[in-house]
């Protein structure tokens, strides 16, 4: 075996390839999102398929020169983030966001750290809404779409918790009372400040934050809706 350096990564998605191989989409610390093939992962005496799953922190090495690298060594790195029930769907939601918004081979070391943090928080029973909103804000910031949350976008005065703002996408909170729901979302200052600082939210703030982030993400995601949201609908009652 060659002594190629190992690097931390998590599997975002996997699908079967040929008889016993897996085609993986990885989120690595040093290279961002990248595809890789794990040859023979499902066969042999010690199949690696059990390790090569989403939400399992790994250390891996690669070889090959093309876009799709071949996976070499795979080592587990600590405990699996065990997500149950709705938290598992949240994990899929996060992965779908990464898959849709991250470009391949574009390193985001900070975002990788945020991703590990949010998975660990979800696995340890933290509030689902707060975890997801916090990650969404950080994700957009890392991608270069940082949201203006603590200042009014025209006057640049600090946002006041009790005031109602109209949040204009790609600009920020606007104090003027004009309402055009096609381009803006009504939101209280308190919600904006919670999002900015990752603070604990009450029920109203949570709903407002969810509606706001959904509109903002929809803007960056384009027409195709997120499939993982379907999992939350229907039979599973919202919290």
């Amino acid at each position: 075996m060659s002594g190629k350096p190992l690097q931390p990564c998590l599997v975002i998605h996997r699908r079967d390839y040929r008889n016993s191989s897996l085609l993986l989409e990885l989120f690595t610390l040093d290279e961002g999102r990248m595809p890789a093939i794990a040859r023979g992962a499902k066969s042999g005496r010690a199949p690696r398929a059990a390790l090569l799953q989403p939400f399992t922190p790994l250390q891996v090495s690669f070889s090959g020169k093309g876009e799709i690298k071949t996976l070499g060594q795979v080592e587990p790195e600590g405990q699996v983030f065990s997500l149950n029930g709705k938290r598992l769907y949240c994990g899929f939601y996060l992965n779908e966001l990464l898959m849709r918004l991250l470009q391949r081979n574009d390193p985001h070391q900070q975002l990788f750290a945020h991703y590990v943090t949010v998975l660990s928080a979800l696995a340890n029973g933290a509030s689902i809404d707060e975890c997801l909103r916090d990650f969404e804000v950080k994700l957009l910031r890392e991608l270069g779409y940082a949201l203006l949350l603590d200042r009014e976008c025209e006057t640049h005065t600090p946002v006041v918790a009790d005031k109602l703002y109209a949040y204009v996408i790609e600009q920020g909170p606007l104090e003027s009372p004009q309402h055009d729901s096609a381009v803006s979302v009504d939101v209280h200052g308190r919600t904006l400040l919670c999002l900015q600082h990752g603070l604990a939210m009450d029920r109203t703030t949570r709903l407002e934050a969810k509606a706001l982030m959904r509109r903002i993400l929809a803007f960056y995601l384009g027409d195709k809706p997120l499939k993982s949201r379907e999992l939350f609908r229907g039979f599973v009652q919202p919290e």
């Binding site: 998605h13 899929f92 992965n95 379907e230 999992l231 039979f235």
Partner: peptide, 19 residues
Amino acid sequence: HLSPLDGIGPREIGLDLLD
């Protein structure tokens, strides 16, 4: 199986029929 990243949701695997 459910796999949102492949565009496979509850309906695609016949869960409406199962229900």
